[in-house]
């Protein structure tokens, strides 16, 4: 079938059997969102992964959830994942303290095709917690800065207090040759940044749309509006990449849950090209 994204590089012999990981560090990002640094049970490195991939995290006796990697893929000593506590498994995972163990499978799924941006302008559009799956791509853009044209990060979230990785964004803004625009949907008078949905920033982008790539991650409606706005200003559909969310159970395309028409989001995604999914995103209950 058609290639919808980059194929996952790794395959485990029994993909359903988790390995044991240990929490090396736990950092509170937001009142309900935590970043865990994970290592192997013996303290060694866990796995290699590509930006945009995800793992299945297992909390003892509670269950398993898919979580995107949010760390730097070049740092193999630890696996960094950011989790929002929204269900019983994610609540259990975010309660784990340093030294605690959890089960881990993966990495799974397609990667952000960062290398396709060599020699081009790259726009990263993040919404809410969608900044976490994009952070590995941002690390790579930073590491290989010279290979890209103009870099822009547009980040939209609900309120100023919901901004993820706030300190890192400030550092990047200082150190990186990258335009970073943060916008919130609602703010008090003290907020000095943008107010309005993230798509409003897209028409003002000063990029070479004919030679640009966009990576988009956030709630599906936001991605749909953002991708459409990017296309409206001239970024080709094929140069826009989205990370989709569906119910993932096995993560290897065998359980059927994450079907999205002719694709399995777990193995043909989560990162998918806009031209392949645009029509489907407009349909209800696919």
């Amino acid at each position: 079938m058609d290639r919808l994204g980059e194929r996952a590089p790794v395959m485990a012999p029994d993909a359903m059997l988790p390995l044991i990981a240990r929490v090396a560090r736990r950092v509170r990002e937001l009142p309900d969102t935590w970043t865990l640094d994970l290592v192997a049970a013996d303290g060694g490195p866990l796995m290699r992964y590509a930006p945009g991939q995800f793992t299945m995290m297992y909390a003892f006796g509670v269950g398993e959830i898919p979580v995107s990697v949010s760390g730097d893929a070049a740092d193999q000593t630890r696996l960094v994942q950011t989790v929002r506590a929204v269900g019983k498994v994610s609540e259990a995972v975010t309660r784990l303290a340093a030294g605690d163990t959890l089960g881990l499978r993966g990495p799974y799924g397609t990667a952000w095709p960062v290398a396709e941006g060599y020699g081009r302008d790259v726009v990263v559009v993040a919404g809410g917690l969608g900044l976490a799956p994009l952070r590995p791509a941002l690390y790579q853009l930073q590491a290989e800065r010279k290979r890209f044209g103009k870099l822009v990060l547009l980040y939209g979230t609900r309120r100023p207090e919901d901004i993820l990785f706030r300190r890192q964004l400030a550092n990047w803004r200082r150190q990186l040759d990258m335009e970073i625009e943060v916008t919130v949907d609602h703010a008090g008078a003290a907020w000095r940044g943008h107010v309005g949905v993230v798509t409003r920033l897209i028409p003002r982008l000063g990029i070479d749309v004919d030679n640009a790539m966009a990576l988009v991650c956030g709630p599906e409606v936001m991605m749909r509006f953002a991708a459409s706005a990017l296309n409206d200003i001239g970024v080709p559909e094929e140069a826009i990449h989205l990370s989709l969310e569906r119910n993932m159970k096995c993560a290897v395309g065998l359980c059927g849950h994450c079907q999205f028409a002719g694709s399995f989001v777990c193995k043909d995604g989560a990162v998918m090209r806009y031209d392949k999914v645009r029509r489907l995103l407009g349909l209800k209950e696919i």
């Binding site: 929204v86 809410g128 309005g196 949905v197 798509t199 956030g218 409606v221």
Partner: peptide, 14 residues
């Protein structure tokens, strides 16, 4: 833009 803002997409999912 206002429509999208009204949806409050980052509210709980996201």
């Amino acid at each position: 833009a206002m429509r999208l803002q009204l949806l409050d997409v980052y509210g709980s999912a996201g």
